[in-house]
Amino acid sequence: MIKVVRGNPTPEELAAALAVVQARAAAAEDSPSGAHEPAAAWADPARVARHSMPRPGPQTWSRTYWPA
């Protein structure tokens, strides 16, 4: 049951909110319990270590941020 606590929504606004709630509930039923969504590629810690670290030397400090 959904209860409007504050405000006075129009019937169209209430119908839109209920449609969103129903769509989210249907999506939750479709996914298996305990299943996690795959992490985005930008969140993968392995992407940080794709390039080798610079070798020690006099110019190493200038190459520590930009991979070769």
Score class of each variant (00 low, 15 high):
residue 1 M to Q: 09
residue 2 I to N: 04
residue 4 V to M: 00
residue 4 V to E: 00
residue 5 V to M: 11
residue 5 V to Y: 03
residue 6 R to W: 00
residue 6 R to V: 07
residue 7 G to Q: 00
residue 7 G to E: 01
residue 8 N to A: 11
residue 8 N to C: 06
residue 8 N to S: 14
residue 9 P to L: 01
residue 9 P to M: 02
residue 10 T to H: 01
residue 11 P to D: 14
residue 11 P to Q: 14
residue 11 P to N: 15
residue 11 P to L: 10
residue 12 E to Q: 12
residue 12 E to D: 13
residue 12 E to L: 08
residue 12 E to F: 05
residue 13 E to M: 06
residue 14 L to T: 03
residue 14 L to H: 05
residue 15 A to Q: 09
residue 16 A to G: 02
residue 17 A to M: 08
residue 17 A to L: 08
residue 17 A to I: 06
residue 18 L to H: 07
residue 21 V to G: 02
residue 21 V to S: 08
residue 22 Q to S: 11
residue 24 R to S: 10
residue 24 R to E: 13
residue 25 A to Y: 04
residue 25 A to N: 10
residue 28 A to R: 15
residue 29 E to C: 10
residue 31 S to D: 08
residue 31 S to V: 13
residue 32 P to L: 15
residue 32 P to K: 15
residue 33 S to N: 11
residue 34 G to A: 03
residue 34 G to M: 03
residue 34 G to L: 02
residue 35 A to N: 10
residue 35 A to E: 15
residue 35 A to P: 02
residue 35 A to F: 12
residue 36 H to C: 09
residue 36 H to V: 11
residue 36 H to M: 13
residue 36 H to S: 15
residue 36 H to I: 09
residue 38 P to R: 08
residue 38 P to F: 02
residue 38 P to Y: 01
residue 39 A to L: 09
residue 39 A to G: 07
residue 40 A to I: 03
residue 40 A to K: 11
residue 41 A to G: 03
residue 42 W to G: 06
residue 42 W to M: 11
residue 42 W to D: 14
residue 43 A to P: 00
residue 43 A to R: 09
residue 44 D to G: 02
residue 45 P to S: 02
residue 45 P to V: 04
residue 46 A to P: 00
residue 46 A to V: 08
residue 47 R to E: 08
residue 47 R to G: 04
residue 48 V to K: 15
residue 48 V to Y: 11
residue 48 V to P: 00
residue 49 A to C: 09
residue 49 A to W: 11
residue 50 R to T: 06
residue 51 H to Y: 14
residue 51 H to M: 06
residue 52 S to L: 10
residue 52 S to G: 11
residue 52 S to K: 13
residue 53 M to K: 13
residue 53 M to Q: 13
residue 54 P to H: 00
residue 54 P to Y: 00
residue 54 P to Q: 01
residue 55 R to Q: 13
residue 55 R to P: 04
residue 56 P to F: 04
residue 57 G to P: 01
residue 60 T to Q: 12
residue 61 W to H: 12
residue 62 S to Q: 15
residue 63 R to H: 09
residue 64 T to W: 12
residue 65 Y to W: 14
residue 66 W to M: 13
residue 66 W to C: 10
residue 67 P to I: 02
